[in-house]
């Protein structure tokens, strides 16, 4: 499913003394089946932006078009039911929203809410738990007996069980250990490829942006300040540093060498790219023989 924002403004707490314009003139097209990363420092408007995709927040001005369904200031919740079945959001620290007595009960809550039969919801729950690779021995346990990483998997399964076409992930790996982080990112990548899910990933991990996304949106002060492929966005290193965004580690290292006079053909985003560039420069050097 494709997503389009047309001249979207969002005013937070409108008509109160705390009124605050938190999205400003957002124009954006996200193609069906793409993997888009959204970056920007805390408070830049990333979370506000993604909550517009399933109508949790509605534009104060302008409109959002999700696969033909229009969301504007006048859209009613009732009109959003079918859309919400197709747009799954995994919020930050989703494990804090677990509540049911068993893992399976928790995961099937979503589909049940969308009117699916109990048997079908249970099947979907089991399917989703398999997708997130939570071993079967845990399915009948209380979610609160699980480790933090396992709880996060359960929460993500709960979103997958509603069969979304668009999966929105708000810093899904925050607080996980390196192994857990890697497995989680691989899982999303697999879902993206196998099930053609459109993915929107809000993240601070520039290495994940470089490794997984085909498109990057940079937000600052409620506006989109850059939008393009990772290579394009990470090319402007001085600008990124000025916006407190950081770079993939390999790019950071390359800049240190470049600042000392090493001439690379292009900015590497990962280690193999960096080593490739180093080998090139080395081979270009005039030989002493």
């Amino acid at each position: 499913m494709s997503i389009a924002f047309e001249s979207v403004d969002f005013v937070y707490q409108a008509h109160t003394p705390f009124e605050n314009l938190s999205l400003r003139n957002i124009n954006l097209t996200i193609p069906d089946g793409s993997y888009t990363a959204i970056i920007g420092h805390t408070g830049s408007g990333k979370s506000t932006l993604i909550q517009h995709v399933n109508g949790l927040l509605r534009p104060t001005k302008g409109l959002v078009n999700v696969d033909g369904q229009i969301i504007n200031a006048n859209t009613k919740n009732k009109q959003l039911v079918s859309l919400r079945q197709h747009v799954g959001i995994v919020f930050q620290f989703p494990e804090s929203q677990l509540f049911a007595e068993t893992v399976v009960d928790d995961v099937k809550f979503g589909p049940l809410n969308f009117g699916v039969s109990d048997t079908e919801a249970t099947n979907r729950a089991k399917d989703a738990l398999q997708k997130v690779k939570l071993p079967e021995e845990f399915w009948q346990k209380s979610p609160f007996e699980l480790s933090g990483g396992q709880m996060r998997r359960v929460a993500i399964a709960g979103v997958l069980a509603t069969n979304p076409k668009i999966l929105i992930l708000d810093e899904p790996t925050a607080g996980l250990d390196p192994q857990g982080r890697f497995e989680m990112m691989e899982l999303f990548n697999e879902l993206h490829h196998k099930e053609q899910l459109t993915i929107l990933l809000v993240t601070h991990q520039m290495d994940d942006v470089a490794n997984y996304a085909d498109n990057v949106i940079v937000m600052d002060g409620g506006q989109i300040v850059k939008n393009g492929a990772p290579v394009e966005v990470f090319r402007d290193t001085k600008w990124l540093i000025k916006h407190q965004l950081g770079l993939p580690k390999a790019a950071n290292f390359a800049i240190k060498l470049a600042d000392r006079g090493v001439k690379f053909d292009k900015m590497p985003l990962d280690i193999s790219g960096l080593v490739h560039q180093i080998v090139n420069v080395k081979d270009r050097r005039p030989s002493h023989e």
């Binding site: 250990d177 390196p178 857990g180 580690k249 290292f253 193999s272 960096l274 080593v275 080395k282």
Partner: peptide
């Protein structure tokens, strides 16, 4: 233990693999 290898060690190993 599922810990991350430091970036520098990754880079070092990749360099060695390419003959540096």
């Amino acid at each position: 233990t599922g810990l991350e290898k430091p970036f520098n060690a990754h880079l070092f190993d990749a360099l060695v693999e390419q003959g540096i």
